[in-house]
Each structure stands twice: as structure tokens, then as C-alpha cells.
Computed example of a mutant assay.
Amino acid sequence: MFDPILVVACCAGIGLTLTYFTLGSSRVPVAKDDDETDDDVRPVRKRRVLIVTAHPDDEVMFFGPTILHFTQREGALVYLLCLSSGDYYGKGKFRCLELMESCRFLGISKENIMLYRCDELPDNPSIMWPVLRTANLINQHLHALDINMVITFDSGGISGHINHSALYSAIQYLVEEEFLPEDCEAFSLDSVNIFRKYLSVLDVPLSYAVSSCAFTVDFTQYSAIQRAMKAHASQYVWFRKLYMIFSRYVLINTLTRLCP
């Protein structure tokens, strides 16, 4: 009979080995301009990416690998649209300042950060944001900034927060109604079950293997994500510290293209 401890140790060893060779690589969606084959000399337009979040700290807790890929590896123009100040516990003023500092570590310029304080979109886990109002706000920025890639949460919202899910509903509405800019594509961050969510490094090879769009971090970028989270000092309590250690979202993001 096999020793169960030995079997677990071998599986963990294989997983860690595969993770070592996976971290630092990315599988990037092909931009629409890249599909053009009739004019090979035409320059490809730099990607203009909008990350849409609900609260300050969403950008680092969930989208860190994606943001760092575009700011550091690809050199894309990255914008962040955060649709609330995170004032559920009355700390919105401080959280806005923390967001600016976090984005500095992630490579997003201060002038590219847009933070909304809107009574119709409160930071509240029991209030669903109106789809049309949310969609219109997002769409204004997509067109004004000439965005060609927008990224937000999926319907599960990663953590189940309904403010996160509302962003998915809004962008899915824009996709279905064909309101996005002509060359803009929408992607959602994949939610996974709670077991995989906290597998940390052991989930990286599986996620990378089964996803058509995936971003991982190297060790330097992992340190940048940790520094960005510490910038959210008002939110950096013990359970968030544990999350930043064990969450696979700190190491890998997998995205799904939204279709009508």
C-alpha cells in the first residue's frame, strides 16, 4: 500500500515544481489589431486597458497579476475606474488615499485613476447597483479614453460581493447591446471554488493549463503586490494578511472573454 503522506508530499512537490516554471509567464489575448494580416507593416496600436473595480483594494487583492502584466511587461496604457470610495465603515477618505499609493506600486499613474463617490453606487454588500446607471458610467469612460480592453469581475464576483457582481452585469449589458467602442473587448476575472481559491501556488499550474488567457507574477512582482496591499493600511487586518499569503489571485489571474 502507498503511504498517503508520501503520496501527498509527491503531489505537492510536483505542483511546486510546475508552479516554479509557470510563474512569470502569461497567456495574452490577441488584440484585434493583431489579427490583421493584410498589412504586415501597419503598426499595432498600444493596448489601452481599463480595470473596473468596486472598492479601493480590489485592484491589488484580485487584479494584481493582470495589472502588473500590462504595466510592466507589455507597457500598455492602464487606467483604473473604481466606482466607490469604500466608505461602508466610514473610512472612505482614507481608503481613497490608500488607493493612490497602492496603484503607485502597481504602476498605474495617478492621473489614470478615476474614483467615484456616487450615492446610487454605495459601498454596501446588501445593495445591488442599478445596471443601467453603472453601465452608463463605465461606457462614458470607455469611449472618452478610447479603451480597447476592459476587465472586471465575473458574475460570481470572486468573493460573492454583490457590488462586484454588479460590475459584471453592467459590462455584460454593454456587450450584449453592442455599446462598447468598436475595437473594445471585455474580459471577466474567473471565480473559482473556495478550495482552489486558497491553494495558492498549487493552483497555478492547473489554472494556467486550462485557461486561454492567464497572467502570472514572478517573485519581484509578487513583492510589489504585497507592498501595494500594505498601502491599504486601514484594511490590512489579520484575515487580509492571510488572504495575501494563501490566495491564488495574488499569483495568477485567469480571464474569460465576454460574448453577446
Rank of each mutant, 00 (worst) to 15 (best):
I5N: 10
C11S: 13
G15S: 07
L23Y: 01
S25F: 01
P29G: 01
D34N: 13
D35T: 12
D35W: 10
E36S: 12
V41L: 14
V41T: 15
R42K: 15
P43A: 08
I51D: 06
A54V: 03
H55K: 02
P56D: 03
D57N: 08
E59W: 09
V60K: 05
F62N: 12
F63D: 14
T71N: 02
R73M: 07
E74T: 02
G75K: 05
A76L: 04
L80C: 05
L81H: 00
S85Q: 07
G86A: 10
D87Y: 05
G90K: 08
G92D: 01
L97A: 15
M100W: 09
E101F: 05
C103D: 04
L106V: 10
I108C: 11
Y116C: 13
C118L: 13
D123G: 11
D123C: 12
S126Q: 14
A135R: 06
I138F: 11
H141A: 13
A144G: 03
I147S: 03
N148S: 10
N163A: 12
N163I: 05
N163L: 07
L167G: 05
Y168H: 15
A170K: 09
A170M: 09
I171N: 07
Q172H: 11
E177N: 13
E178I: 00
P181L: 01
E185G: 04
E185T: 15
S188Q: 14
L189D: 04
D190R: 04
S191T: 15
F195K: 03
K197S: 05
L199A: 15
S200M: 08
V201E: 04
L202E: 06
P205Y: 09
L206F: 15
V210Q: 14
C213K: 12
V217D: 10
T220A: 15
T220Y: 08
Y222C: 07
R227Y: 04
M229T: 08
Y236W: 12
Y236Q: 05
K241H: 02
S247M: 06
L251F: 14
N253H: 12
T254L: 03
L255S: 06
L255F: 06
C259S: 13
P260Y: 02
